[in-house]
């Protein structure tokens, strides 16, 4: 499967009923997905080539790391801090739904996408030769490429003009 544009909302979640602190570690080549439904911290690490996803439902910190060539996704649905790192040639996509900070790093030739859905700061970086896209729907946006609604995207912020009317 060849990725043209990577997911901007992270992996399909597996819900784990933990309210506060939530962490999971997957062995090599395994899949790892955790969800913290409360306001706690949520972290997930896949040490091999597996997929790793973490979701914090509240205003907490959410970090996901893949050390190998797998996929890495992290989502903080509220105003938390969200960071995702893919150490190898993987895919890395973190999303902050609220007003938090959002950063993503793909260490090698992977794909890196970061989205801050609200007024947060959003940064995406890739050290290798892959693709890097970051979009902040209203906040600050810093990345190699930035795409937003109706082609309106600035280096500082992405603001969409209304679409109706015959201006």
């Amino acid at each position: 499967m060849q990725i043209v544009v990577g997911s901007t909302i992270g992996p399909a979640p597996q819900v784990v009923a933990l309210q506060a602190v939530c962490g999971a570690v997957a062995k090599p080549t395994g899949a790892c997905a955790v969800v913290g439904t409360g306001a706690g911290a949520c972290g997930a690490v896949a040490t091999g080539d597996g997929a790793c996803g973490a979701v914090a439902g509240g205003a907490s910190a959410c970090v996901a790391v893949v050390k190998g060539g797998g996929a890495c996704g992290a989502v903080a649905t509220s105003g938390g801090v969200c960071g995702g790192v893919a150490g190898g040639a993987g895919v890395c996509a973190p999303v902050v739904g609220g007003a938090g900070a959002c950063g993503a790093v793909a260490g090698a030739g992977g794909i890196c996408g970061a989205v801050a859905g609200g007024a947060g700061a959003c940064g995406g970086a890739i050290s290798g030769t892959g693709a890097c896209a970051a979009a902040a729907s209203a906040g600050a946006c810093g990345a190699a490429a930035c795409a937003a609604v109706v082609g309106v995207c600035g280096v500082v912020a992405c603001v969409a003009f209304p679409i109706g009317g015959n201006w």
């Binding site: 499967m1 992270g10 992996p11 399909a12 979640p13 859905g117």
Partner: peptide
């Protein structure tokens, strides 16, 4: 399967996708 799930092409059957959309919509 991990790749398909990571990109959101498959979901666990118990997940209500419409709720996921609605949640994201309301946050925005």
């Amino acid at each position: 399967l991990d790749q398909l799930a990571q990109q959101g092409f498959v979901y666990p059957r118990e997940v209500d996708e419409l709720s996921v959309v609605k949640n994201l919509y309301q946050q925005t």
